[in-house]
């Protein structure tokens, strides 16, 4: 048994599994615990995007979530923003 463990190597040691899981959970916790943080991002996003298009601020939604990474099935934290566009701005007129 120990002989095989030798080949499994460093990364599968249970403390590394714990550390990886903990890091993921904390990204979520840290973002989750402060609505101010999300509101700050939301405010900045509105400011930037409004230069290019008219958006529906009341329907805009922004949250932290988790998703599978493309390359493998590892779960990673993701920032998801749903921003309904009312109308594109005419860049030439700006």
């Amino acid at each position: 048994m120990d002989f095989f463990k030798f080949f499994i190597g460093e990364s599968k040691k249970s403390k590394n599994v714990a550390k990886e899981r903990l890091k993921l959970v904390l990204v979520h916790d840290r973002a989750d615990c402060s609505q101010d943080f999300l509101d700050a991002i939301k405010g900045d996003l509105i400011r930037v995007i409004s230069d290019y298009m008219v958006i529906d601020e009341s329907e805009m939604e922004i949250r932290m979530t988790r998703t599978k990474r493309d390359t493998d099935d590892t779960m990673i934290p993701a920032l998801v923003a749903n921003i309904p566009i009312k109308q594109m701005r005419d860049r030439k007129r700006l």
Binding site: E10, K13, S14, K15, N16, A18, K19, L22, K23, L26
Partner: peptide, 16 residues
């Protein structure tokens, strides 16, 4: 347990 890699060590926790 830390020696065996079955418990987070001091640096792991300070890192987090």
């Amino acid at each position: 347990m830390v020696r065996r890699g079955d418990m987070m060590n001091i640096d792991d926790m300070l890192d987090i």
